[in-house]
Structure formats: structure tokens, C-alpha cells
Design a protein around this nucleic acid. Structure first.
Lengths: 377, 377
DNA sequence: TTGTACGCGTTATCAC
DNA sequence: GTGATAACGCGTACAA
């Protein structure tokens, strides 16, 4: 490592040319005489010249990178929240060079309940598309610290934001950021005076398909909902469930059976109580797969069988739902496509901004599996 | 979106103060009178001011972000290579806002064979630790285009590089970059005159445990190796297998049974031939889980049973190995820890560079599962 | 407490 | 084909 940063000036001096020539040699090689060019390259190699992205970005007026910012997810990230943010690898004494397995305390096996989650699959789609577009990705996460979003926004040409249930402060920060660069939000329905682009999924259609399936195929009628309503997606799902039930002339609950967020402390308190009283509906329709898996754990721990005693369904279509026993009936979101679409949209907006914010709603699809009584797949 | 970028000058003018005051208001709020500060904030909010990361980075002499660059992986990324880089979401006509599921061609289900792979779990560890450290992550990928590494390096304070089997050009580029900022390489044993930090795993110990298990528990003696030797990790594994066999007085193959890289075209040609001739060893020790899964596919397609007819083992410990039938016996690497360690190392190096490059070798662990004849777990 | 002025490293527009 | 020079936006000594 050079003590001081190597700049064009150093390279120019070494190669016996001016800084303009150095810059040209890299940016438009064809317009520089070959001998000069090679001299510049040699000097750069010897000195270990790495052009400063900051300086380039400043001069160019853009960074060339797209960002993905995730606010801490109160709900879907619950499992992560339970685990300490630090791991043994975070605190290891780095003076030793051989570190035995035991000291790493690595999970015995990869745990699909922790990774990949919903947000991870979206992120993957975002990364894949950015790579296709030849743009690096800047990832950042924060626990709703508003400063972080702005900070991230300052380093990218376009920003995708993942946040269920954003705070008022976060909304304000995003509105401000949207004035400076294209911002696309996942899974948050548009407000009145909206300035962001949006990528949503068809919660309504997915939930309707699910309810219809439960009623028509399994003859289930007593359906209850699990999940808080402050998260926008969840609210849409609950409303859609009610709508679908009422459309069939069936009774629909006025409120979710349990709204407690997953995560720290004793979650699903209301449900636990109902389990204790053995006062359960025929089917528990959960707002997400993560919730559904937690619900199945609770039920099975109480000696109840899924789906014989209680049907449980999820929403999202994460990998973990395929690996649970029973496998989880769910409505799958096109997560990779959501991430890819976000990247594409931002890319296009940076090239040619559209006058008004754009909203996309992507299709969903029902995957009946064993937790509703369908055969394992 | 503002047509022209909003700068400190705009905010200062609007708030009726100087640019220094604006800067102070954000950086050292306590040193600015409250009334002034609020005026600045208000102006910033109204104008949609987002500080330029480039300008800040330039002034500060550092970017505050850590980078992870992955060269295209010839081997482990084979499955991805088979799939087109573009997806329907990459080419959708974005003038419509409602996009049905059918048009997305999303995978019917999340496919653990494609994600998460080895590199994804390392990346996750890197991300988690960066988050803990409060640093954003810059991700970039390239197909060995050397320019990209340098470009990425110019935007970060430290760089982790993932590349099995790097080209000479890539090595040269990395050497150059290492002069400018801390670089840590995964899974590549040190050269003589080394300038990078390294994070390696104990391939030797892991392979020894595997071979001992196969011999002692399952009485397997005819072991053959699958995997190319140019990838450094694979070479270590093959050498360790030979060593372990010879140490037991057992015969050891001089070369891998098949060295063809996974991926495009007809892979594992040599193995296919041996399968056709029904001339197979008792056990196929594969250099990676990805290879092992492909090998099991081939064997089973030819009507051979694993482990009854042929034992198959992998290396890495990815999730897909737990989901295959039979489940895959493997040696697990502490992938999350590797990623976390890389981030920590870079972080510390940016704060206080160590005089010499540092190398860490992390422990591995054998996970016997059904593909060697152990009970399903 | 607030304002002025300079430097950070690159690109681009000019002359030469 | 090459060299001088002016932005780009922010942080911060230093002066007021």
C-alpha cells in the first residue's frame, strides 16, 4: 500500500507527460500515440495507480452505480434479529492465523430459515440485472437511521429501497431523496402525491386464488389471518382475504387473530393463547412464509397436526417453505423479477428520466403444498 | 428529480448562510446555533439536498465503503452460466404497468441448486459484517475483465476478491491494486512474493477426515477424484486425498478421473465414458458440492444407485447438498465466517495497515450424510 | 458562531 | 498529439 495516494500527477511525471495525456491514455487510447500510451501504462503499473472513483464521479456528475438500501425489517428479518449481529468471526483475535472450526461456531449446516429470505431473493435479482447492465451495486442496511439512506443516495445514480412499514421519518427522507435521483420502492402502495417509482405484486389476486383453493378443494371455511396490518403488503393481503371470503358468502374475520410482529420477545402471544385453549380455526392464513413457519412450529410443539388439525398457509414463496414438514402452501412472488425490474427501471431513469413516477404490479402464483392438505411436491 | 444537482451553495443561499455553515450543520450539528441549523435543514429538505458522495470521498481521501469483487467462476458458477444472463424481466416492455406471472417466467420454485452457492454464503457473511461495522458494500462482478477490478478498487477503501483460477492478467491487476489499498483474496494459497491478504480453509484436514471416514466406516478403498486442478483449492484437495490414502497404505490415483470444468457444453466427459463402461470406483470424491451433485445426477440417470453402487462426496457444504437425494456427504467450509473475517480484516487495515500481508486458514468440518452410506440427517 | 479560500483527483475544453 | 487550466461539490483551516 502506498502511503500517499498515487495520482495522475505521479503517473504523468514518471512517464514524462502531462496529466491530460495520462487521462487520455486510459479513456481514449486510440487518440494517443502508441509509444506515449505504453509509457503511461508502464508508469501506472509500476506505481500501482488506481484512478479515484470519487474524483471521477465528481467530474462526471454521476457515479455509475446503483444502490439497494434495506431498512431493518421488523417482520421478515425477525430471525436475524434474534441472532446476535456479531459472530465469533467478528471478535476473533486476528493475531493468530490458524483458526480451528470450533472457534468459529459456524452453524452446523446452512439454515434455510435464515437465508435466503424474501429480501435476499429480491437482492439477488437486483444484483444479476446490475451485472448484466455493467453497473456495480452499492448495498446498505440500516435500522431506520434516516441519515444512512441519504448517505447511500449520495453515492449512487439510482436507489432501490426495501422497507416494510417505514417510519414517518423514513418516508420524509425518501421524499427528499427522490428529488435528487430516481428511487424505486418495493411493496409499498402509492400515496396521493407520490414521487417514487413503485414495484408491487398482485397480493389481491394471489390471496383470492389461495382462499378459493382452501374453500373449493379443502372445504375449509373458518379462516383466520395472522399478521400485523401496518406493513402495507400485509394489509392488502388481509383485505383481499376478507373480500374473497365475503364474495363466496362465507364469514370473514374483522381483524387478524394475531398481529404481533415476529422477532424478539414472545411473539404470537394471541395465537399461543388460542392454542392453549384449543380454540383454533380450520385454517390459519399467514401474511408471510416466515410467519407461517413460526406458526407451524408453535402448533406442532403443542401436539397439533398440520394440516389435519389446522391448515396453515404462507405468502412469498421462499425456499424454506419447500423444506419444512409439511411443505408450505404459499403464494409466490416473482422475487428475482422484482429485483431485476428495479435495476432496469433505475438504469433507464438515469439515462432518460420519465416525467412521472411509474408503478408496476407483478403477478403472483399459488403453490398448493402439503400444509393445506395437498400432496407433497 | 432536480434537473441540476442541488449543492451546498444552493442550500446556503436558501438558508441565508454560507456553505461552511451548511456543512457544519450536517457534520457537527452541536457547533451550530439551533436556529441556524434548523434553517439549513429546512432549506435542504425543501430543495431535496443530497450530499455528493463523490465530492465527500474526494475531500476525505476515502470512500468509507468496502468492496467485494467476484470474477466469473468457471466452475462453481457453472449453473448460472448455463442460464441466460438476461431474464424476461430484463427485456419486458416497461410501458405497461401490470405484468402477469406468465410473462415473468419466474422459476416455479426457488432453486437451491442455483442459489445460494458457495460464493453467495461468503458474500452474505461479508455483508453482515460490513453492516455491523456500519460500512456499505460495493459489489461487482466481471468475466475476468481486468479493467473492472481496478474500477471497483477506485471506489472502495478495501477490496475482497473472489476468484478461483485467476488468469495471469487478473493476477497482475490485483498486484497493482494491492499497492493502493488493502486486498484480501479468498481460497488462493500465497505466492512467493505476496502482497495480498489471504483467507484460506483447511482443505487438507477436511479431506483427511473425509478419506479416513470413507475407509474406516465404510471400508471404501478404491477412491477416485473428480475436479480440475488449476483451481487452487481443488489442487489442495486432490493432493490431500492422495496423501491421506497413501498414509493408510492404500493405492492413490495419480490424477483425477475427470478434470473437465462444469458448465457449458458436455461436462464430465471422462466420467460419462466410465459410466458407460460400468467401470467405476467404489467412491467418487468430488472437488466441490456442485460437482458432486452433477455427478450424482449422471449416475442416477444411468441407473446407478448412490451410495450402494457408488459413493459420492462433495466439498463446501452448500445448502443444496442437504436437499439432494441422497443427501450429500461433504466437508463444510465456514463460509459466513470467511466473509465476515474478510470484512473485518479490511476494516482494520484501512484504520491501521499492517506491515506485512496476513494469511488466515480456517477450520473445516466433515458432515457425513447419506451419499456415503451414513444415515440421512 | 460564521464566512472565505483552498485542496482533494479527475475529466474536458481549449490552445499549442 | 500533447500540455495548461478550469470545473466538479465538499470539508476545513483560518480569518473575521
Amino acid at each position: 500500500m502506498a502511503s500517499r495516494r498515487v495520482t495522475v500527477y505521479d503517473v504523468a511525471e514518471r512517464a514524462g507527460v502531462s496529466i491530460a495525456t495520462v487521462s487520455f491514455a486510459f479513456r481514449r487510447p486510440s487518440e494517443v500515440r502508441e509509444r506515449t500510451r505504453e509509457a503511461v501504462y508502464a508508469a501506472a503499473r509500476e506505481l500501482g495507480y488506481v484512478p479515484s472513483g470519487s474524483a471521477r464521479g465528481l467530474a462526471a456528475g454521476q457515479t455509475g452505480t446503483l444502490g439497494l438500501h434495506a431498512f431493518d425489517l421488523l417482520i421478515d428479518r425477525a430471525l436475524e434479529a434474534d441472532a446476535p449481529a456479531a459472530s465469533p468471526a467478528s471478535t476473533l483475535d486476528l493475531t493468530e492465523s490458524a483458526i480451528p472450526w470450533e472457534r468459529l461456531d459456524e452453524e452446523a449446516v446452512a439454515d434455510p430459515r435464515a437465508f435466503p429470505l424474501y429480501v435476499d431473493e429480491i437482492q439477488r435479482g437486483f444484483e444479476l440485472e446490475c451485472r448484466r447492465l455493467g453497473r456495480p451495486v452499492l448495498l446498505s442496511r440500516s435500522s431506520d437511521a434516516v441519515a444512512d439512506v441519504t448517505e447511500t443516495a449520495g453515492r449512487v445514480d439510482g436507489l432501490a429501497v426495501f422497507t416494510s412499514d417505514p417510519s414517518a421519518a423514513a418516508v420524509a427522507a425518501l421524499t427528499q431523496v427522490s428529488k435528487a435521483l430516481p428511487v424505486v420502492l418495493f411493496s409499498l402502495p402509492p400515496d396521493a402525491d407520490d414521487t417514487h417509482h413503485r414495484i408491487l405484486v398482485d397480493n389481491r389476486g394471489g390471496m383470492a386464488a389461495l382462499v378459493d383453493h382452501l374453500v373449493a378443494v379443502h372445504g375449509a371455511t373458518g379462516l383466520e389471518f395472522i399478521g400485523g396490518l401496518t406493513a402495507a403488503d400485509y394489509g392488502e393481503r388481509f383485505a383481499a382475504m376478507r373480500e374473497a371470503l365475503l364474495a363466496q358468502g362465507l364469514p370473514a374475520p374483522d381483524a387478524p387473530l394475531d398481529q404481533s410482529p415476529l422477532g424478539r420477545g414472545r411473539a404470537l402471544e394471541a395465537l399461543r393463547e388460542r392454542i392453549g385453549e384449543r380454540r383454533l380455526p380450520r385454517a390459519l392464513v399467514c401474511a408471510s412464509d416466515q410467519l407461517a413457519l413460526a406458526v407451524m412450529d408453535l402448533l406442532q410443539a403443542a401436539g397439533l397436526r398440520v394440516p389435519e388439525d389446522v391448515i396453515v398457509t404462507g405468502f412469498d414463496g421462499v425456499l424454506a417453505g419447500r423444506l419444512s414438514r409439511p411443505t408450505l402452501t404459499t403464494v409466490r412472488q416473482p422475487m428475482e423479477a422484482m429485483g431485476r425490474l428495479a435495476a432496469r427501471l433505475l438504469y433507464e431513469e438515469t439515462l432518460a428520466p420519465s416525467p412521472a413516477p411509474r408503478t408496476f404490479r407483478l403477478g403472483t402464483r399459488l403453490y398448493p403444498r402439503a400444509s393445506c392438505g395437498c400432496p407433497e411436491t
